[in-house]
Design a protein around this nucleic acid. Structure first.
Lengths: 196, 196
DNA sequence: AAAAACTAACTGAGTGGTCAGTCAGTTTTT
DNA sequence: AAAAACTGACTGACCACTCAGTTAGTTTTT
């Protein structure tokens, strides 16, 4: 028995793709309606405004991110903290590929502009970043406990590593450089940065 | 004797700021005209379309970047390649602060979307990135010659380092985290990455 | 069991507003 | 006087959002 997708879910799905790929301003509500196979008015029945629809998209992504990384966190069978960092880097790149459109959304400017005067938006973004940076921080702390990682400020180093891997994902989606061939250098660089 | 600014220059200046801060789609030609103290039609006298105005802004930024880094390249009195990397990291952050709006433009999505079907735009972006990455690459090669930097693939490591600084600048402008306190960790991380 | 009443989901034509680009005419420069 | 620079009212296209009404399904009444 297939669970049949509701119209509201269809709208949210299509909106995620179009907002991500084309951008918020560039995507019209009519376009979303058409792509979702729904009348223009139907969107406004489920989501009061365009902004509210966008926030629903962002909230859904937040929940997805948290869920993905909590699975990784539980399944914690790495030998050392340093090895866990390497595994997390791989997973981050894998996830950014699998959830390509949502990560693209995170690399657009609109969410951050909206966040300036929309506390709900700001909270979603903060939770997303806290999750993404948090996993690296935990691995660093673990590595410092087991002796595989040097005594460096854990949170700050986590931000450095996040910045690096996220920057690579971003550069890749912008199509200026293909960062795929940089994978080995990413791993060894982080290794050199952290090891005792 | 002040060199008096032409109307065309005034339009270009205002357009740079507004496109950077507000975004391309969100900024109307009327808004630019008003801010530049010029009639709506005047913009179209100097720039045929909005897209052409944007390209002029990007081209101007490209020339600015190239000029800034060629000065640094000439004034080359650092003891070792590794020390030059550190100096370049500082300069990058200093420049990203001084040319805040133009760097913001580089972190928006529109230029990359436009580049997909506009070769001129693509060339501007490529030259900008080649300049930014090139300076790090040269410093690495120099460091490998003088023995201060390990034998790693120079171009790839330059991209890694660029990604790291640029990602920090970007994270900072998005106001989620203030990356200023990460400056020391940035320097030491790059040092650990590269040193023999 | 049939009819009536009610309800949530949905529709699409219509509205007011915005915006890139035009153009006929005016002002400034050479 | 000719050319170049400039003006601002105007146009057609687009867009977020509204709303009066339709449809399908459920509950209540008879």
């Amino acid at each position: 028995m297939e669970k049949k997708i509701t119209r509201k879910e269809a709208i949210l799905l299509v909106a995620t793709q179009l907002f991500s790929i084309q951008g918020y301003r560039t995507t019209s509500m009519g376009e979303i309606a058409k792509a979702a196979g729904v009348a223009d008015g139907t969107i406004f029945y489920h989501f009061k405004t365009k902004e509210e629809l966008f926030l629903a998209v962002l909230e859904h992504f937040k929940e997805e991110i948290i869920s993905e990384f909590s699975i990784i966190e539980e399944n914690d069978t790495y030998k050392s903290g340093l090895e866990k960092i390497e595994a997390l880097l791989s997973f981050y790149i894998y996830l950014a590929n699998r959830l390509e459109d949502r990560f693209l959304l995170l690399h657009r400017h609109f969410p951050y502009t909206l966040a300036e005067d929309n506390p709900a938006c700001w909270n979603h973004l903060e939770e997303i970043y806290n999750t993404l940076i948090g996993v690296f921080e935990q691995a660093i702390l673990q590595g410092q406990a087991d002796g595989s990682i040097d005594e460096l400020p854990a949170r700050k180093m986590a931000m450095i590593i996040f910045t690096l891997v996220d920057g690579m994902v971003r550069l890749n989606t912008y199509n200026i450089y293909h960062t795929g061939p940089l994978y080995n250098e990413l791993i060894t660089s982080c290794h050199r940065m952290l090891k005792k």
